[in-house]
Design a protein around this nucleic acid. Sequence first.
DNA 1: ATAGCTATTCTTGTATACAAGACTTGTCAA
DNA 2: TTGACAAGTCTTGTATACAAGAATAGCTAT
Lengths: 244, 244
Amino acid sequence: MTSLKKEGEGMTSKADILRQLRNEILTLELKPGSILSETALSERFEISRTPLRDVLKQLAHEGYIDVYPKRGNLVSYIDLESVEQIIYLRSTLEKDMIKNLASHASPLPLRGVLELKEILERQEETIEQEQEHAREAFLRLDDAFHKALFTLAGRVFLWDLIQQSNAHYARYRRLHLLKKEKLKEILAEHRLILDSVIGRNGEKIDEIVQHHLHEDINAAYLSENFAEYLNLPSFDSSEPADRT
Amino acid sequence: MTSLKKEGEGMTSKADILRQLRNEILTLELKPGSILSETALSERFEISRTPLRDVLKQLAHEGYIDVYPKRGNLVSYIDLESVEQIIYLRSTLEKDMIKNLASHASPLPLRGVLELKEILERQEETIEQEQEHAREAFLRLDDAFHKALFTLAGRVFLWDLIQQSNAHYARYRRLHLLKKEKLKEILAEHRLILDSVIGRNGEKIDEIVQHHLHEDINAAYLSENFAEYLNLPSFDSSEPADRT
DNA sequence: ATAGCTATTCTTGTATACAAGACTTGTCAA
DNA sequence: TTGACAAGTCTTGTATACAAGAATAGCTAT
């Protein structure tokens, strides 16, 4: 409902193009393996190849596409190894951050806490909705919640750093069909986390965050159902170029 | 002693140019505030502006330069906020990783342990040397040690991720004059860490790593002695452009 | 002397022509 | 049929001309 102007893509800046392409890849509208040709895209967005290459460079840097020199740019296949690394990174960081927020003496900014509460309220609203975009909204609010946590801990810098390598994890999450029960569980865990922070109680944070983020990577399940999206060893296709 | 071919920079690839510029900024040979003009650099490296802009884009992404649209590219001032964030990130991660290595049951690959030992031996050699480049060698070996730890823990992915935002921390370290005593202390801590890993004893890791990485940011000292290198609030100079 | 305007000269941003590698296709020969 | 080779056609990589914003210098008018 936001910006589906395929026809007559008028007056789009580089930042807009980047956002749009990133979003199309993220939501799997552009499937892994799709070709992103510079000339094709430059015609679609009515812009020359030079600025468009900047956008593709950025996408490559974030891991959304792989560049094969003189051959083409492909939407990258989801790499479960990257996913696992990001989960470990976030899990370790967020455990520590939340425990600090919970146990530490520093006063919590009221505004930050209110923002977290509001996000959870909005997230609850999306659960009952059955539409397709409601699930997407839920995931966006999930990101918003965690980003707000980083902000509250004074670590939004690290959130942004992680986002730079989020291409695989973000798509990985969207591979799971999130049933209503699962959504409720996620929301409940968010509430537990928030309560820990507010109530100054970091007791069970380790287990909560571990379970909340881990969502154990079920490689077997994913391989069976989404093999064409994944970067599996079998698919060897001559490694992409180094990001110089 | 490696590549000081200012004259007749023959046959340099993009990757070489990137490495060279990054290195010159890293070692403070190019001081914060220095102008990196596209045309000047393209003449110096005998290459056109197009590939050179790619290199500058990369440097900007890593935080080495700030791009002011239509005005110019400046070597960034060292940002102590970024430094603190990276220290927190590394400290939290490395504590967890080392404790896992120490306490966990997974067998240690012999090759990795030997590599760590060899690095420490080479690091000890550099301590006694008084030359300027010996200090630089010590720092490179410091990086090598920590990278090897990440590798041993199966987390080299995260090491590489952190390196992408290392421009400020890397220069920050080089602001401190490392006296022989300090170097010995660092080496001793490395030995403690390695012993913990080998001896399966994660007892005091938290304090060791905390102290090892923290090297408390002495803002007052830095401001007094290196004000012209730092990104201080006073210097307001209209924010650089967003990395689109 | 100084405020304000204008032309100039920097800078980076964009468009486009051309270079060069990689792959495909088709022809021809064995 | 199958192989090799070559022409052609994709792709991205590079060079360069031009556009346009930003800063500066210098002029003019008050």
